[in-house]
Amino acid sequence: MRHLIDILDLSKEEIDELCETATDIINDPDKYNEVCKHKILATLFFEPSTRTRLSFESAMLSLGGEVLGFSEAQSSSAAKGESVADTVRTVSCYSDIIAMRHPKEGAPFVASRVAEVPIINAGDGGHNHPTQTLTDLLTIHREKGRFDDLTIGVCGDLKFGRTVHSLIAAMSRYKNIKFVLISPDELKLPSYVKKDIMQKNGMEYYETRDLLEKMGELDILYMTRVQRERFFNEEDYLRLKDSYILTLDKLETAKKDLTIMHPLPRVNEIATEVDTDPRARYFAQVRNGRYIRMALILKLLKEAENEH
């Protein structure tokens, strides 16, 4: 059974295929609006995430399928002490595909080992969130038309920001990718990501505390939120949350075709005045999230059908 637990579960060719399907869906949505008729997506959200859950539900409904599930552990049998494995075995009997979010790292992997239907990891704590990375990749594909030869600035919380780690891992398979890592010292990219992914794949990177230093060189600027829930200490959070705020002034030296991305939700790291700049693509990115999830659901359901 094919699952999506980590972005690297997908080959480069499969990512291209998903981006092509998503683009076809964008161009001709009517063609797809009944392709998952009588199929059921279960959204098992053991921790709340309205945005991700709604994007999965919207994706399945747009394909003509049905959805069921829960949006927090309290409304599931996990509150009674049921294991992840047992919950997933049970829900496998009621659905054709499962999207699962869980606060514990590795929970969707545990699910994938017992499930009888495809499992999609919709985020496991600070570990993986492959459909966010697919969303980012589709946005890059649509905005730049390529995955090679890009200088990508990532700014904010690079220590706990799983979207950044996954994006770096995904981009490590393409040619001539340079990362500019912009963060305060306390939130720098962990050394294991630099060593195990960037150095191992010969990726070029530059670390700076200054958002403006390399602004003029960037093809993509990926802003991230300093997430309160990743801190053990409230004082550290309050001290660091406003470190990097993107404003129109700061974009003066930026390229005309810069793509500004953000996994959202934002707090105040991008001033709202930037929203109307044509380089701001984070709301297009949200839309892409729905289309790439449609493409993913289709692919996994097709492969599961072929197995049977």
């Binding site: 992840v84 590795g106 929970a107």
Partner: peptide, 9 residues
């Protein structure tokens, strides 16, 4: 934060 800290068996 690992699932092994809570999942039985």
């Amino acid at each position: 934060r690992c699932i092994t800290s809570v999942e039985r068996g």
